[in-house]
Write a protein that binds this DNA or RNA. Structure first.
Lengths: 123, 123
DNA sequence: CAGGATCCATAAGGATACTG
DNA sequence: CAGTATCCTTATGGATCCTG
C-alpha cells in the first residue's frame, strides 16, 4: 500500500487541520510524549505505549516523519535497528501536546466529578 | 441511542487518555476554539465550523458537556434556543488546545516543506 | 431550531502471517 | 528486529427523516 493511501486525510480540508489531527491522533499524542523523553527504537515504543498494533505504530511514525516532526534513523545492520527521535519542529509540537496532556491529568478529578453529576442528573 | 453507547471510549484505557481524546477529537478541537471566542448557539456553531453534520456536532457537545467543559443553556422557548459556552474548566482546556492549534498554523509552512522533501525522496 | 433515530459508506484499527 | 501485506471487525461520520 502506498503511503498516500493510508494517510489520515481525505483532504478537502484546510491543511493545518490535518497536521493538528496528526499530532492529536490517538497514537500520535503518545508517540510524541514518549519521544520527548528520549529517542526510542520501534519495539521500545511499542512496549512503552502498550496496546498499539505494529500497523498503527508504523503508520503513525510515518505520518509524523513525513510531517517533519520525527526523525527516523535506520541502521544497516542485522538484525535491523531503527531509532526514532524528535526533530526540532517535533520537539515544539511535543511540548504543546505534553502541556495539554499534563492539564488533562491534573484536572482529571474535576472531569470525573462533572461526569458523575451529569450522569446522575439524568438517571 | 443511550449516551453511553456513542461515547468515544471503549474504556479499558487510563481515564485521562479519554478526556484527551475528547478535547483533541476532530470536532472537539474546533468547538472549543470557537467557544473560547464567545458563546454560540447550536446552528451558529454549525455554520462557524462548517462541514460538520448535526449528529457529530451534537455528539461532540454532549461529550464535552458531560466532561464538564461546556455549559448547555436550553431556553424553554419556541422555537427552541440553546446556547453553548465554556465552563471555567473548559476555558482552561480550550486555551491549551488553542495554543496547539496556533503552533500548528505558525509552523504549517515548515511542515509542508518537510512533506515535499519526504515525497520527493521516494519518488 | 435543536436535536434524536436510522441507515449506510468508509475509515480506523487489530490479528496474523510473512520477509529482508 | 522492523516492518509489509492481507484479511477482518468495529467505530466514525454523514445523509436523511422525524419530532417537540
Amino acid at each position: 500500500m502506498a503511503v498516500s493511501e493510508w494517510r489520515i486525510d481525505g483532504e478537502a480540508m484546510c491543511p493545518y487541520r490535518l497536521v493538528l489531527e496528526h499530532v492529536t491522533s490517538r497514537w500520535g499524542v503518545l508517540v510524541l510524549i514518549r519521544l520527548l523523553e528520549r529517542p526510542h527504537r520501534f519495539s521500545e515504543l511499542r512496549r512503552a505505549i502498550g496496546r498499539v498494533s505494529e500497523k498503527m505504530l508504523a503508520q503513525t511514525l510515518q505520518t509524523l516523519e513525513r510531517d517533519g516532526l520525527v526523525h527516523r534513523d535506520a541502521k544497516p545492520v542485522i538484525p535491523p535497528r531503527v531509532d526514532y527521535s524528535l526533530t526540532a519542529l517535533g520537539r515544539e509540537a511535543a511540548e504543546q501536546v505534553q502541556a495539554l496532556a499534563g492539564w488533562t491529568e491534573r484536572r482529571m478529578a474535576e472531569v470525573e466529578r462533572a461526569r458523575r453529576a451529569y450522569d446522575e442528573a439524568r438517571a
